[in-house]
């Protein structure tokens, strides 16, 4: 009973100082942001545009790109590559641990190979993939897919293996078939792990698409950055980086919304990063 008794006062006291403290946090956040911008602006004034592009210039460039429509093309290309690779690699990475659960022996047999595959630095594969799949969409999709697959696969596997065997026994005694157990118990147990994996994998997916575009591409934010570099256009490089960051932030925000809804039962957000 003691848990229930103590749980309530804590919540009340949180609300007690919560309001004022939240305002302070917001204020601090804004001040910190202004400080960063000030330092940036100062460095820009000090070193000049060729080294550090100023915030105003970047904003101006982004606005201009948006007006000509070039911005949307690049963002769309990068986002599309990341999304496609993410969907393909991600669904394979999520599904496979569930299939492997059916055969622990096969899992154990595959273990060293999976570890070795994990050890390959995926970024170094980019040139090879471009050689195989060309400079278009396909090579980036495969690249992103491979990266996301491994991240999600290992998180998913950890999740599937952390299933409480008592819950499974319980469900078996209650007459649950293997499929029901997978859906009602294994899936829910693995879900927080999968989300932890997604959180890491999403920004990486976009980075991977950008890196792929650095090497060879005809459009995309990575292409834009690389192109700017070759023309010593510092403002362009900065603008590209800012746009990539913005894309990552937007995508992460969307993920967090979904996560908050699916993991509402979890008391606190204790994220597992594998």
């Amino acid at each position: 009973m003691n848990e229930a008794v103590t749980a309530r006062p804590i919540k009340i006291s949180e609300r007690g100082w919560g309001g004022g403290s939240r305002r302070k946090v917001t204020l601090g956040r804004i001040l910190f942001g202004i400080g960063c911008l000030a330092i940036w602006q100062w460095a820009h004034a000090r070193l000049g545009t060729e080294w550090i592009a100023g915030p105003a210039e970047i904003l101006g460039r982004a606005a201009e790109l948006a007006r000509t429509g070039e911005l949307w093309v690049h963002v769309w290309v990068t986002f599309g590559e990341a999304l496609l690779g993410f969907l393909i690699g991600g669904s394979a990475g999520v599904l496979l641990p569930f299939l492997l659960r059916l055969s622990p022996r096969l899992t154990r047999a595959l273990d060293p190979y999976l570890a070795a595959a994990m050890g390959v630095p995926k970024l170094s594969l980019a040139p090879l993939l471009i050689l195989w799949f060309g400079i278009g969409l396909m090579s980036k999709v495969v690249f992103v897919g491979a990266l996301v697959f491994f991240l999600l696969f290992f998180n998913g596997l950890a999740g599937v293996q952390s299933v409480d065997s008592r819950l499974v026994s319980m469900a078996r005694v209650a007459g649950g078939r293997e499929w029901v157990i997978t859906r009602e118990i294994v899936w829910h147990t693995a879900l927080p792990f999968i989300f932890a994996g997604l959180k890491v994998a999403l920004p990486r997916a976009i980075s991977a698409a950008v890196v792929g575009e650095f090497i060879a591409a005809e459009a995309g934010l990575g292409y834009y950055i690389n192109n700017a570099r070759s023309m010593a256009d510092t403002v362009g490089i900065f603008t590209g980086v800012v746009l990539v960051t913005a894309l990552v932030i937007v995508v992460n925000g969307a993920l967090e919304l979904v996560q908050a809804r699916s993991l509402a039962w979890r008391p606190v957000d204790r994220d597992m990063v594998v």
Partner: peptide, 10 residues
Amino acid sequence: FQDAALMPWR
């Protein structure tokens, strides 16, 4: 069981 073994998500 000794520990209730409830599904925490339900």
